[in-house]
């Protein structure tokens, strides 16, 4: 079988995974990731994120459907897929009795990289993930964050064209998280690496991903750029604090014409309105201020709240992401069997 295209994108069609003992973890999903794009895959515990990743990295054969990674079919061209990709899975895959450097050398050798090239590559990656000092210590004594960073380095050993990261920043301190974000961005922008990244953190998807897919119970419920998704949910909320407390009723009356009032949305003493969908396209902040001005009211403070991915998530799945758990969440951790 031949490679269907030369690029390093990901194409998923009707992918299904039905576990023998368990739910349909992935229930017919379609995904397209363009070469060099960072795709954020969001979902609550047990939604099917890891299952999808495991299928795409050829660790888990799909029940139905097909997918290509960099043009290679995951079901029939596994060896070629593996040569092209790097992956850092949700559970770090390390050997406690080897040092960080030994890990890098081992993985390099498994990929067919040996000798001085492997050595320089190991040094380079140790530097990049900030593990130079710990390079020759056995991994068993590493902290969770150090293990995660080493796991990421292992994913990068052979300069993969497509990178899969399953919740890469879980357990990292804020500083390591930011530097990982920068690294991922650099890989995508400078090296043109395609990144498929699952996360629990909306913020992460928001700042990092070019496009986001939201999966819930094995089904993709929303997809698009973070901005588009937010826009789809609705317009911003405008919150106005009048100068005088007595003006609040009058202020409410003015704002009513722009959308639905949200008494609980703003801080005390303010009036908040969620702009109407179609109105939001025409009415800018200026229009509103002008209307207030015409009514002879004084404004002390104006705030605009854009909808967050959290709102998107709530709207699409009926629950909030942070703290959301599926019924099966107890066994959501994929086990090696």
């Amino acid at each position: 079988m031949q490679r269907s295209s030369e690029d390093n994108g990901i194409e998923v069609r009707g992918l299904v995974k039905q576990f023998k003992t368990g739910p349909k973890a992935v229930d017919g999903i379609d995904i397209d990731v363009a070469p060099g794009e960072i795709y954020g895959f969001l979902g609550p515990n047990g939604a099917g994120k890891s299952t999808t990743v495991n299928m795409l990295v050829t660790l888990l054969p799909p029940t139905a459907g097909r997918a290509t990674v960099a043009g290679w079919d995951i079901s029939t061209q596994g060896p070629d897929v593996r040569k092209t990709i790097g992956a850092a899975l949700q559970a770090v895959a390390l050997d406690n009795f080897l040092t960080a450097r030994e890990h890098l050398r081992l993985i390099a050798a498994l990929q067919g990289i040996t000798g001085p090239r492997a050595r320089t590559r190991a040094d380079e990656l140790l530097h990049r993930v900030g593990l130079e000092e710990a390079a020759d210590r056995k991994v068993g004594g590493f902290s969770g964050g150090m293990k995660r960073r080493l796991d990421l380095a292992l994913a990068l050993v052979h300069e993969p064209r497509v990178l899969f990261l399953d919740e890469p920043t879980t357990g990292l301190d804020p500083q390591s998280r930011t530097s990982l974000w920068e690294e991922v961005r650099r890989l995508a922008r400078e090296d043109g690496v395609t990144v498929f990244l699952t996360t629990q953190y909306l913020e992460e998807a928001d700042v990092l991903a070019d496009r986001v897919g939201i999966i819930n119970r094995g089904v993709i419920v929303a997809e698009g750029t973070p901005a588009a998704l937010k826009a789809e949910i609705g317009a911003p909320t405008i919150e106005i604090v009048p100068t005088g407390d007595d003006d609040r009723v009058a202020m409410s009356r003015v704002l009513e014409q722009f959308g639905e009032l949200h008494p609980e949305a703003g801080s005390p003493g303010s009036v908040a309105v969620r702009l109407d969908q179609d109105l939001a396209k025409r009415a800018s902040l200026v229009t509103i201020i002008r209307a207030i001005d015409e009514a002879g009211l004084q404004v002390a403070e104006v705030r605009q709240h854009d909808p967050s991915l959290d709102d998107v998530f709530l709207a699409k799945t009926g629950r909030t992401l942070e703290g959301a758990t599926d019924a099966e969440a107890g066994v959501a951790e994929p086990v090696a069997r």
Binding site: V57, T58, L59, P79, D80, R82, K83, I85, A87, L89, A91, V92, A93, L94, D95, N96, I107, L110, Q111, L154, A336, R337
Partner: peptide, 17 residues
């Protein structure tokens, strides 16, 4: 032991064949 610790996944991912 490798399967239990998860390291087997690394091996399975890293080798082509």
């Amino acid at each position: 032991g490798d399967f239990q610790s998860g390291f087997a996944r690394r091996l399975m991912l890293a080798v082509a064949d």
